[in-house]
Design a binder for these strands. Structure first.
Length: 420
RNA sequence: GGAGGGUUGGCCGAGCGGACGAAGGCAGCGGUCUUGAAAACCGCCGUGCGGCGCGAGUCGUACCGGGGGUUCGAAUCCCCCACCCUCCGCCA
């Protein structure tokens, strides 16, 4: 949620920032009016309550003989208060719903544009060249019996797969490798719940806007997380953090579930886009003034992870038109996939400034009640399936085997994969 | 799944219809004392929303797990829900 006070005090600035994301200024003006209406009603209700309270308290102090008259008098005011309260409740509900739909203010440095307009800010490694026609990950993994797509489809449907044998071992190795790097940067490892309540989805900004991407349980009591960002962000729901404890850094490992609604026919081959995948996720709570630096730090972790895997990728500053609702700025790592001859997203890190924290009510204690909202940031340390794709496609040899990068070898216990 | 007991401020814990934002203790902060520290003593010490003020602040209101109800008045009474604990059953 954006700051209603900022909209109140500086509506032009908010309108200018959000127009970069295509938000209609007229809609913001409506919001501002709603906010004004809300404040007027609050003043009225508070005054009515004050009156009623003093009247009731007087009854307690009065002589018993005088009470019946005072009670009748106080009782007469009840209806008016209730009516005002009802009106306020309606406006509060509209207010909350309307504000929930407004995306975060983009970072001033985030580039303009829509999907595809990202600015490349650097590259990792060298683009590998092959003196044979490179295979894609499906060919490589299936030949080695490291993946079973057909049976994944039989059991669970399209966009599901089994990782088997060296494919499964690869996951364990990659996960531990990524977690070790994150820990060196001070992130505390966490295995979070993967089923969460609606309040956690709402607080992290996935609801109401991304409802069509989420799986729910049959009784609809729970949502399946689309990323461990959700339970990690919600960890400090409704908490006041001590500034001495900051920054608070976590690295979560969990499965992630996505409906991929609207992606019909897109990336249907292999495990690039599946309904269930595993991910090692970085998450930080920081003081507002530190969030830009923390964003760079998270990006640095992602770079170290993929540098260590000797994967060639480019670092992209994502344009405002392609940002999720809660992000002010986002950097993606896009690895080159020889099987597609294209750069595809393998990690993503976002600075959500105070947008998530406002909904989650995660604040930082500051002197004399000037508490501030925390800034939250998230990033992919390693998305297992996509990392496997990049790794096997970039490090493949003509015989279909894969050279294991030196830094991963201790975790995998071998120098070659799929060597037969 | 069945039976019972709980949920109060950063923590512990009193309160069981009226002057309660809530006793007391611990922790924390400031001070007195001390060469320094400890101890002792004194003071301060919740959060949200809204109003006023340039500001330190100040006024109003809400909050005792969440929601609803009864009442002139609810932390206290009633209903629903969530969570925690104990016992039984089941279970990796």
């Amino acid at each position: 949620m954006i700051d209603p006070r900022l909209l109140r005090d500086d509506p032009d600035r908010v309108a200018a920032a959000l127009s970069r994301r295509g938000v209609d200024p007229a809609a913001l003006e409506q919001l501002r009016l709603l906010d004004e209406q809300r404040r007027e009603l609050i003043a009225g209700v508070d005054a009515a309550r004050a009156e009623q309270r003093t009247a009731s308290q007087a009854i307690g102090r009065a002589e018993p003989a005088d009470r019946p008259a005072l009670i009748a008098q106080a009782g007469a005011r009840k209806g008016e208060l209730a009516a005002r309260e009802q009106q306020l409740a309606r406006v509060e509900a509209d207010h909350a719903a309307a504000f929930a739909r407004v995306p975060n203010l983009p970072h001033p440095d985030a580039p303009d544009g829509v999907e595809g307009d990202g600015v490349v800010r650097g590259t990792l490694g060298q683009r590998p060249s092959f003196d044979f026609p490179p295979r894609d990950h499906v060919e490589l993994l299936e030949a080695a019996d490291a993946i079973d797509l057909a049976r994944g489809a039989k059991v669970s449907g399209a966009r599901f797969a089994y990782l088997k044998g060296e494919g499964a071992l690869l996951e364990f190795a990659l996960v531990r490798y990524a977690i070790d790097i994150a820990m060196e940067y001070g992130h505390v490892p966490v295995i979070p719940p993967v089923l969460v309540r609606e309040s956690a989805m709402y607080g992290t900004g996935f609801l109401p806007t991304d409802a069509q991407q989420l799986f729910t349980t049959r009784d609809e009591e729970y949502y399946l997380i689309g990323t461990s960002e959700v339970p990690l962000a919600a960890l400090h729901l409704d908490e006041l953090l001590d500034p001495d404890d900051l920054p608070v850094r976590y690295v979560g490992y969990s499965p992630c579930f996505r409906r991929e609604a609207g992606a019909h026919g897109k990336d249907t081959r292999g495990i690039l886009r599946v309904h269930q995948f595993e991910k090692v996720e970085l998450f930080s709570f920081v003081a507002p003034e530190d969030s830009d630096a923390e964003h760079e730090r998270i990006l640095a972790i992602e770079q170290e992870v993929f540098d260590g895997l000797q994967i060639h990728a480019q670092i992209v500053d994502i344009p405002v038109g392609d940002l999720g609702a809660s992000a002010a700025r986002k950097f993606d790592l896009e690895a080159w996939l020889p099987g597609q001859d294209a750069y595809r997203e393998i990690t993503s890190c976002s600075n959500t400034t105070d947008y998530q924290a406002r909904r989650l009510r995660t604040r930082i204690r500051v002197d004399r009640g000037n508490n501030v909202l925390a800034h939250t940031l998230n990033g992919t340390a390693l998305a297992v399936q996509r990392a496997i794709i990049a790794l096997v496609e970039q490090h493949q040899r003509e015989d279909g085997s894969v050279v294991v990068p030196a830094r991963l070898q201790p975790y995998l216990g071998r120098e070659r994969l799929f060597a037969g």
